[in-house]
Amino acid sequence: MSFYSLSARLINGEEISMSNYKDNVLLIVNTASKCGFTKQFEELEKLYQKYKDKGFKILGFPCNQFGSQDPGTNEEIAQFCSLNYQVSFPMFEKIDVNGKNTHPIYQYLKSHASGFLGTKNIKWNFTKFLVNRQGEVVGRYAPNITPFKIEEDILQYLK
């Protein structure tokens, strides 16, 4: 199975194949609207604006599995991201990133990049995965690693 064989629903319900993002560098993030890390949306949007024309995309996946910090509907989440952070990168429907209902994209990401001490499970909101232009997972970043701290790694793959 390749990353590009997977798909997910945008926050508006439209099914999107990851093959639409082929030849792009991707930063995939499980997000939450009511988290201490929520302010990272600001840095994510700035990075997206800075590099989107060079083949960089951010894919946001809301998740309510950590402290119930994203309890809203998909519509409420979309409105929150737009109004508070002017998010223009693709946001997807709320998903599970751990457990028996883990979304296939997160099954793939976790199986190709372990976390701290080799753990597979996502530990909290705003865990980030970097995927190169060939669909290979090349990085996994803890929630406390801010988007700007990943910029050099992103640039390495945008070359």
Rank of each mutant, 00 (worst) to 15 (best):
M1S: 14
F3Y: 13
S7K: 12
R9T: 12
I11V: 13
G13D: 13
E14H: 11
I16A: 03
I16M: 09
N24F: 07
L26F: 07
I28A: 02
N30S: 07
N30K: 10
Q40A: 13
F41C: 10
E42Y: 14
E42N: 14
E43C: 09
L44P: 07
K46L: 15
L47T: 12
Y51N: 08
K52E: 10
K52D: 06
K57W: 04
F61E: 00
Q65P: 05
G67D: 13
P71N: 10
E75L: 10
E76K: 13
A78F: 04
A78E: 15
C81T: 07
N84E: 14
N84K: 15
N84F: 07
V87T: 09
V87L: 08
F89G: 10
E93H: 03
I95Q: 03
G99S: 04
G99I: 08
T102K: 01
L109R: 01
K110Y: 00
H112M: 00
A113H: 07
T119A: 12
K120I: 01
N121G: 04
I122S: 01
K123M: 12
N125E: 06
N132I: 05
Q134M: 03
E136P: 01
V138M: 02
G139S: 11
P147W: 08
F148R: 11
E151W: 11
L155P: 04
Y157R: 02
Y157T: 08
